[in-house]
């Protein structure tokens, strides 16, 4: 037995009875190993294509939202590309970051990099995102030189997935012009209905904060009353709570709160 012969070893392994414990364990290991190799190879080769599709989808949603906002269509036709501005905001100070190129900045990658992101304290992390990038893009839409809309990228955990959305505010930085989800993995037919135009149409005209500056906007169970409440989707209470928490986080101190305060105080002119 001094000579180690893998082929003979393999034959001996195969010759073992099928209820042998050793054979069962080795077999289980081999099957899971092969299966994981197949799945990993597929994931590595196919994910770039999937990511491309997602990026295209995000772009389309952004354009769709710009088109569907509560601006009159004749004004929209005048919207030229110059009127659509992307700026990068330093979230902790609430000011524009001048030395970052908006066209190449990737907020998602930055959120994964400990050097470019902030690890959130658990009790402040209402959106459930754990790491928040230090910088975030905002999209500024102007008409006749005057500020028309400010669009913020937001994300947060819903019932079972990360929700990605764009929140558009009117020039007062307190009235919602639209909320559009472009990526989510909630239960189809229930939580996933947050992407339906009918539900997103409930948002325009709602108000974020009251006179004291407290963020009051929320998704409620059943039908919402007044300017701070949006009807929940029946059966999707936790998705609705996730949406509320996400907005509270991104409008709060760890999100765009400092930036919004500066706009409202007139320190930043857009």
């Amino acid at each position: 037995m001094a000579d180690f012969n893998p082929i003979r070893l393999w034959k001996r392994f195969l010759a073992l009875p099928n209820d042998d414990l050793g054979k069962t364990l080795v077999f289980a290991f081999l099957i899971t190993f092969v299966a994981s190799v197949i799945v990993s190879v597929a994931a590595v080769t196919l994910t770039p294509f999937y990511q491309q599709n997602l990026d295209r989808e995000r772009q389309a949603r952004m354009e769709e939202m710009v088109a569907s906002l509560s601006v009159m269509s004749d004004i929209l036709s005048e919207l030229k590309i110059d009127d659509f501005d992307v700026r990068i905001v330093d979230l902790s100070s609430g000011t524009f970051a001048k030395d970052i190129d908006p066209t190449s900045y990737n907020q998602r990658e930055a959120a994964r990099d400990p050097n470019q992101s902030l690890s959130l304290p658990r009790d402040s992390d209402t959106a459930g995102i754990r790491q928040r990038a230090n910088f975030a893009p905002v999209y500024i839409l102007r008409r006749d030189q005057a500020l028309e809309l400010i669009v913020f990228p937001v994300r947060g955990v819903g019932y079972q997935s990360m929700l990605y959305a764009f929140l558009a505010l009117e020039a007062d930085a307190n009235t919602i012009a639209g909320l559009s989800f472009y990526e989510q993995g909630e239960t189809p037919g229930v939580g996933a209905r947050i992407t339906e135009p009918d539900w997103q149409a409930l948002w325009p005209g709602k108000t974020l904060a009251d006179e004291n500056g407290d963020i009051r906007i929320s998704v409620v169970r059943g039908s919402g009353q007044g300017r701070f409440e949006v009807d929940g989707i029946s059966g999707a209470t936790r998705t609705g709570n996730g949406v509320s928490n996400m907005l509270h986080f991104w409008l709060g101190d760890f999100g765009f709160g400092p930036f919004l305060k500066r706009i409202q105080a007139g320190e930043i002119r857009l």
Partner: peptide, 13 residues
């Protein structure tokens, strides 16, 4: 399940 994951990724791509 492995085959289904590959199929799902393939369709997504």
């Amino acid at each position: 399940a492995s085959l289904v994951i590959v199929m799902d990724l393939f369709l997504k791509a």
